[in-house]
């Protein structure tokens, strides 16, 4: 394996560069995935049947906490990658830990929110609108859950092996994933919640 020291650690081998490009292409596929979910959402948003509409069930408080927490986590993972580039392993792991912690808070609030939806009569089977709402939010939440497991695995590996081209590469790719989830959340926030609350 040839290591090119003129490049940042995460780009330093050919395999690493391929991994990063491959992951960008995967994000392209993810954009299509969420794009399709949004298309379905816009198609079904007014098809509420006998169930509630968005304005009936959306709550401001949990929404603001989720948004604040997730956007902050995107900032902290940026700091983690910055620390990684400076070679500061401890700072990097601390910021990665904070990111995951914020992710966990987001997830807990989202579970609380789902519980709230269920109690105000917006279950998965209620109407086409509730089904697509919960599926879209659930797909994003599922991605965050997967991210928590993935991030934990990366922290464990850095603890064991230190910052190598491999672990740096994994961390960088994980940060792309995490930022992407944030971008999706901005769309969910704007086009599902804000539009629904208006």
């Amino acid at each position: 394996m040839k290591i090119d020291n003129s490049l940042p650690l995460e780009y330093s081998t050919g395999q690493n560069q391929a991994n990063i490009l491959g992951f960008w292409i995967f994000i392209g596929a993810e954009i299509m995935l969420f794009g399709t979910l949004f298309a379905a959402y816009f198609t079904l948003v007014d098809r509420t049947g006998n169930g509630p509409t968005g304005a009936d069930i959306f709550e401001i408080a949990p929404l603001l906490i989720e948004t604040f927490v997730l956007l902050t986590s995107s900032f902290t993972i940026g700091l983690a990658i910055h620390a990684m580039r400076l070679g500061k392993q401890k700072a990097m792991m601390a910021f990665l830990g904070i990111t995951l912690l914020l992710g966990l808070v987001f997830l807990s609030v989202e579970i609380f929110e789902f519980n709230h939806f269920y109690h105000v009569g917006a279950g998965l089977q209620t109407s086409a609108f509730t089904a697509i709402l919960l599926t879209t939010l659930g797909t994003h939440g599922g991605h965050v859950t997967f991210g928590l497991l993935w991030g934990t695995a990366i922290i464990l590996q850095i603890r064991k092996r230190g910052l190598t081209p491999e672990t740096a590469n994994k961390s960088f790719i994980f940060s792309l994933y995490w930022h992407f989830l944030d971008v999706v959340w901005i769309f969910i926030f704007s086009f599902i919640y804000l539009k629904g609350l208006m």
């Binding site: 979910l37 006998n50 998965l124 089977q125 086409a128």
Partner: peptide, 24 residues
Amino acid sequence: VALLMGTMDRLFATNFFTTANGGM
């Protein structure tokens, strides 16, 4: 996504593609 929605309609009785409760 389409298969996911179809699966949910069949296994979890959601209303994505039904003719009732707003399905399309």
